Structures are given as structure tokens and as C-alpha cells.
Amino acid sequence: MTDYDVLRVFCAANGGYGNELGVVRDGSVLPDREDRQALAAKLGFSETVFVDDPERGAVDIYTPTLRLPFAGHPCVGTAWLLDVPELVTPAGVVGARLDGEFSWIEALPEWVPPRTLRQYADAAEVDALPVPPPGEWIYAWAWEDESAGRVRARAFPGRDDGIDEDEATGAAALLLTDRLGRALNITQGRGSQILTAPQPYGWVEIGGRVFLEGPEKQPRSAGY
């Protein structure tokens, strides 16, 4: 059996919404990348994290179809779960901290794969968008209240892996924060909340609420 935890990351104030995340705390049970990729595909979360060293915070992140050097909501959720001051990702060392109900990480925009940040006239236009065909990774956004830094957003990964829309995406929020150069309060998907803030030397903080749904077990089968 492969044990894993299920978290919801970037939840709303009432504990609802958030993007689901699978975390395999003992990555040694699946040391091979092919097996990890197969499990990530089988679980079907937008990302699944394998923890290779819980004390150092060394992690390995997968979508259902590919391995990522860095991703926002997996790092926010895993840092909260492990309660560590940093995570070690292939992209670099991610700072982490807890502040009341929010879990925060600090990362660099250059760690994020290319995303198309597409601005719309208002939140209603973003709400009405259909899911685009696979191809381009699109972060659709509009101001809800520009003076207050409130943003409405939706994320379309453009992958042919069953994830048509991501409920909450920290990496895309990081890129938007870097572009706009200001702190943001983002409502994404059906109602998830992402907070961001620029930091010195190009770093960006991303924060949100994390809830533990519970531990699960994935039966071993061919390839696991």
C-alpha cells in the first residue's frame, strides 16, 4: 500500500474550496520517477508531491503527465503539512512560514514555467469563459477592486490530462504579482483564496489556508 495525505490548499475563509493535493510523506516507497509519475496519473490530482527527506523538506512534484521543478500550491500545502522552514525543490530552496491561519512560501518568478497571463475587462467576463482547447497555459484574470488589489482569476493548464481547470494555482499568482508589482488578494476557481506579496530582490510570497482531508491508501498494482 502507498500511504498519502490529501490536502486542500488556498481554501476560502469558511474552509471551503481549495485545490486538492496528494502528498506521499515517505517517498522512499516509490523511488523511481516512472512509478511516481504513474501514481500521480492514477490519483488524478493537479499535483502530487513525494517527500524524499521530511527534515530537510526535500520534495519531488508531479502533475498527472509530467514532473515539475516547482509549483505553488504543492509547496504551500506540503510546507504546512511538514511544518518546516523551507522546502528543497529541483528549482531551488523555497522559504516557508506559518502566520496564523495562513501558510506562506517564498519563491522566484523564474522558477515558474511559461504561462499566458490574460487580462479581461471585469470579473463577469472571467466567470463566463469556456474551457479553451488544450495547448496554451492560460491564467485569465480581471480586477475586482484595483485599489484594494482584489483580483478574480481562473486557470486553464491546457494539458490533455483531465485537468481542464485548476481551482487554485500559486505559481501563476506569483507571476501575476511579479508583473503587477503589488500585493494581491486573488479569488480563483469556484472560490479559493490566494494572497501574494512582492519581496526584496525579486522574491514573491504566496499564502493561503490549508486543510487536511485525511490519509488515504493506494493499493499496490503493476508498476507500483
Rank of each mutant, 00 (worst) to 15 (best):
P113S: 05
P113Y: 02
P113Q: 03
P113M: 03
P114N: 07
T116H: 15
T116S: 15
L117C: 02
R118P: 09
Q119L: 11
Q119C: 09
Q119S: 11
Y120H: 00
A121K: 13
D122K: 04
D122P: 02
D122A: 12
A123G: 10
A123P: 06
A123H: 10
A124N: 08
A124L: 12
E125H: 03
D127A: 13
A128C: 00
P130Q: 05
P130C: 06
V131F: 12
V131D: 11
P132Q: 09
P132I: 04
P132A: 08
P132F: 01
P133G: 02
P134D: 07
P134V: 04
P134Q: 05
G135L: 08
E136V: 06
E136A: 00
W137L: 12
Y139L: 12
Y139E: 06
Y139N: 05
A140G: 04
W141S: 02
W141M: 09
W141V: 03
A142G: 01
A142D: 02
W143E: 06
D145V: 13
E146K: 14
S147L: 15
S147I: 15
S147D: 15
A148K: 06
G149T: 00
G149F: 07
R150S: 12
V151T: 01
R152I: 00
R152H: 03
R152M: 05
A153M: 02
A153L: 01
R154Y: 07
R154F: 03
A155Y: 14
A155S: 15
A155R: 12
A155W: 13
A155N: 15
P157S: 00
G158S: 00
G158W: 05
R159S: 14
R159A: 15
R159K: 14
D160Q: 13
I163H: 07
I163W: 08
D164P: 14
D164S: 14
E165N: 06
E165M: 11
E165Y: 11
E165C: 09
D166P: 08
D166R: 06
A168E: 03
A168H: 06
A168G: 03
T169V: 10
G170V: 04
G170K: 08
A173Q: 11
A173D: 04
A173Y: 08
A173M: 13
A173N: 13
